[in-house]
Write a protein that binds this DNA or RNA. Structure first.
Lengths: 281, 281
DNA sequence: AATTGAGTTCCAAATAATAGAACAGTTGCA
DNA sequence: TGCAACTGTTCTATTATTTGGAACTCAATT
C-alpha cells in the first residue's frame, strides 16, 4: 500500500488512515525519512484549515522534538508555510511542481480535444481522471458556462469507490487486481448511496458488462455522473472520462442518453493514445 | 538561500544553479535528507522532458547507489513517476497537494473579484502573483477570451527580475532587502531586454517613484505587461497584479493607459486584505 | 565472444534522525 | 499577583538511515 492511496480521504478519517497504513498486510512502505515527512505533508495539506503544532503533534504519533524538526525542514523547503499565528499551511512551492506535472502530462494533452468536443456536444461538465493507487486524480475539466473557477477540482484526488470515473477504471482491471485494491480501501460513507466493499465489487461486474458506470449521488448528495473507462493495452494507464451534473437535471434517465457519446469519446481518446503514445518509440 | 529561489530558472542554467547553491554566502540550507531529495525533484520537474537515470546521475553530483535509492523513494511516494521507457517524470500526486494549497489560499480568494473586475474593464489578461524567495509564483489568471487553457501559467514560478509583478513586488521592499535578494539571483538572459543586477536595481528605484512597473519583453519576446505591487503592512505578503498582452497590441503607450486602473485594483485588494485577513484575529 | 552502457544491489562507514528531557514564553485562572 | 497548564523551542547521547564505492545483472554493440 502506498501513502498516495489515501489522498483525498476525508480529514475525519485520519485515525483510520493512519492505523490502516501501519497494519497494512503489504507491510510498511520503505521510503525511509521521506515517508515520514510525507505523512506530515499529507496531514497538513488535507486538513480543512491551518493546523497548529500541537494539533499535528497529537496525530503524528512521534516525539515533540522530532515533529518540530520535520516541520521545520518542510517549511524551509517551501512545502509547508507558517501563517502569522504560527499555524501550518500547504506551501506555494507545491503549485510550481504541480503546474509542471500537469503541463506536460501526455494523457491529458492527448485527451483534451476530445473532452472539449464532448463538452460542446452535451453542454454538461466533462472530467478526465486517472487511477493512482485507490484514488482517482482529476486531470482536466471542461465546463459549460463561463469558467466558473479554473483549477477547481483539477488535481483533486477522490476515492475510487464513489466516483463514476473510479468505478469505470476498476471495471477494466483483472478481477484479482480489483480485489487487491478494494482490500486496501478504508471505505467512508459520504452519502446514503456510498458503496461498501461488497456492493462495489458487485457493481464492478455490472459495469464490466455495460461498458459504462454511474455515480448515483455516491460521493456528494445532488451530484450524478456517467463515466466510461480509458485504458492502455498493458494497463499501465487506467482512467476514464465522465459527464457530471446536478441530480435534479441529470437523473439516471437523462444520464443514460449520454452513454453512447461518452463511450465514443473514450474510444477516440484510446485511439489517439495508441497513435500519440505509440506502442514503442 | 532557499532552494525555492531557483524555481523557474531555465533548465539550461542547471550548472550555475547547483554551484551557486553550494557556494552561497548564506551557507547551505539545513534540511538534511529532505533537501537532497528536493534537489532531485526540482531537477526532474523542471526538465523539459522525461529524464533517464543516467541523465539525472550526471548532474546530481552523487554516487550511483545514492541517486538510485533517492529516486526510488520519490517514486514510491508518488512525487515522481517512471514511464514505460524507465524515464523519470513529475508525479501526479503533486497535483493533489497543489490543488489544496491553491484552493484555500487566502490572498487569492480575497483578490479574485478584483482581478475579475479588472479583466472586465480592460479586456486583457490579468495575473496575480506573489513573491517567494527570488521567484514570483502566479496564483491566478483571468483571460479575455474563452478559457483558452485553465491552469496554464497558474502555479508557475518565474524569476523576479524579468516579470512586471516581480519588479513591482521588489519596489515595496526596503532597499537592503532588495539588494540581498538580488545578490542571490543567478541572472539569465532570456531576451535582449532582460535585466542584469545593475539595471534591475536602477529600475527598482524608478518603480518606487512611479508606483507601477513594466515588463518590456524582458522574459519573452513579444510579451509586455504593466504591474502594480500589493503588500501587507508587515511585508509578510508581497506580490502584485499585472495586465499582460502581446507587444504588437499592448505597446508601452497603450500599457500606460492602464496605470490608473491597475493601481486602483491593487489598492482595492490591499484594502480587502486588511478587512479580510484583519490585523489580528 | 568481448565490450560497452544502463540500471540494480550490497554492505561497512559516515551521517542524520530520533527520543526524551529540559527550557522558555503565553495564556488562563484563582 | 502568583500559580498552573499549555504551547513551542532547543539540546544531546543513542539509534537508525543514508552514504559511497564496488560488484553485479542484463542488453545492446562490435
Amino acid at each position: 500500500m502506498e501513502l498516495s492511496d489515501y489522498v483525498g480521504a476525508p480529514v475525519k478519517a485520519f485515525g483510520a488512515m493512519m492505523s490502516a497504513a501501519k497494519e497494512s498486510a503489504h507491510g510498511k512502505r520503505d521510503t525511509g525519512t521521506l515517508g515520514k515527512l510525507m505523512v506530515l505533508l499529507d496531514l497538513v495539506s488535507h486538513a480543512d484549515g491551518p493546523m497548529r503544532f500541537t494539533d499535528i503533534l497529537a496525530v503524528a504519533d512521534q516525539p515533540r522534538g522530532t515533529v518540530h524538526r520535520q516541520l521545520s525542514h518542510l517549511v524551509e523547503e517551501g512545502l509547508l508555510e507558517i501563517d502569522e499565528d504560527g499555524r501550518y499551511l500547504p506551501g506555494l512551492r507545491l503549485l510550481d511542481f504541480a503546474s509542471r506535472s500537469w503541463g506536460r502530462n501526455e494523457f491529458r494533452l492527448v485527451a483534451e480535444p476530445h473532452l472539449k468536443a464532448l463538452q460542446d456536444l452535451t453542454g454538461e461538465t466533462v472530467h478526465l481522471g486517472v487511477l493512482r493507487g485507490t484514488s482517482i486524480i482529476y486531470l482536466d475539466k471542461f465546463e459549460g458556462q463561463q469558467p466558473v473557477r479554473m483549477y477547481s477540482q483539477i488535481g483533486n484526488a477522490s476515492p475510487v469507490y464513489c466516483t463514476g470515473v473510479g468505478k469505470a477504471a476498476l471495471s477494466v482491471l483483472p478481477r484479482e487486481r480489483v480485489e487487491a485494491l478494494v482490500a486496501e480501501i478504508a471505505f467512508h460513507r459520504f452519502t446514503a448511496n456510498t458503496h461498501t466493499a461488497e456492493s462495489l465489487l458487485a457493481e464492478i461486474e455490472e459495469i464490466r458488462k455495460q461498458g459504462h458506470a454511474f455515480d448515483r449521488e455516491e460521493h456528494e448528495v445532488g451530484i450524478c455522473c456517467i463515466a466510461a473507462p480509458i485504458w492502455s493495452e498493458n494497463l499501465s494507464l487506467v482512467g476514464g472520462v465522465s459527464i457530471t451534473g446536478p441530480a435534479y437535471r441529470l437523473g439516471m434517465e437523462n444520464l443514460s442518453e449520454w452513454a453512447a457519446p461518452i463511450r465514443e469519446t473514450s474510444g477516440r481518446i484510446m485511439e489517439a493514445m495508441r497513435i500519440g503514445l505509440g506502442p514503442r518509440r
